[in-house]
C-alpha cells in the first residue's frame, strides 16, 4: 500500500501528490494517510527515537502542539523505529501526538518521500506539510544534526489559508 521509492532519491517537492501509506501509530493500530483528507497533515521525519532531551525535535513539537492544532493540522512524527520503541519513547517524553513506525518494510515511506539515508539505515530529518487534498505544499530537508524548529511548518500551514477545514 506504500508507493515506490523515489527513483532519484530526491526530496519530494511542493506540488507533488503525497505518496499514500498505512503505518502503525501504536501497536495494533494503524493510520492511513488517505483517511486524513480534508485537513492539513504535517509529517516530521526524524532519524531515531532517543536523541538528547532538551534539544529534541519531537519534545519541541510537543510544546508547540497547540499552535499546530489551532491551524487545524494533524502532526505525525515518523521514524524507522518499531511501534514498541515508539511507545516507550512517547511515554518517557510524554509526547501527545502519534509517532508512526516506518519499520516494515524498513524505511519504505521514507524512500517514497525521498528522505531515506541508506548509509545509516534511518530517515533524514525532513518536514512535509500536506494540504487537505493530500498535496505536498511545503517540504524541507534539514542538515541531519540540526533540529529544524517549527517556523517553516507554521508558515506553510498559514499559507494554506482558506483551505483550512478544521
Amino acid at each position: 500500500m506504500t508507493a515506490n521509492a523515489r527513483a532519484d532519491g530526491s526530496l519530494l517537492a511542493a506540488g507533488a501528490r503525497a505518496p499514500e501509506f498505512v503505518l502503525p501509530r501504536e501497536p495494533g493500530a494503524t493510520v492511513s494517510l488517505r483517511s486524513l483528507r480534508g485537513r492539513p497533515v504535517v509529517l516530521a521525519f526524524y532519524p531515531a527515537d532517543w536523541s538528547p532531551v532538551c534539544g529534541d525535535q519531537m519534545a519541541l513539537y510537543n510544546e508547540i502542539l497547540p499552535e499546530f492544532q489551532a491551524l487545524g493540522a494533524e502532526l505525525f512524527g515518523i521514524s524507522v523505529d518499531g511501534a514498541w520503541c515508539h511507545v516507550a519513547f512517547r511515554e518517557t517524553r510524554r509526547l501527545r501526538f502519534p509517532l508512526l513506525a516506518d519499520f516494515e518494510p524498513k524505511g519504505a515511506v521514507a524512500r517514497a518521500y525521498g528522505v531515506y539515508r541508506a548509509q545509516d539505515g534511518t530517515s533524514e530529518r525532513a518536514l512535509f506539510v500536506l494540504d487537505g487534498d493530500g498535496i505536498v505544499r511545503w517540504s524541507y530537508l534539514s542538515p541531519i544534526e540540526v533540529n529544524p524548529g517549527a517556523d517553516g511548518i507554521l508558515d506553510a500551514l498559514e499559507g494554506l489559508g482558506g483551505r483550512r477545514t478544521a
Binding site: 532538551c54 525535535q57 529544524p148 524548529g149 517549527a150
Partner: peptide, 21 residues
Amino acid sequence: FTSGVRSGVNGTPTFFINGRR
C-alpha cells in the same frame, strides 16, 4: 515563547547572533 517558535528556536538554549540562529 511564541516569538521563539516563529524565529526557529529548536530547543534550549537557542542563540541568535545579530538576528540569525
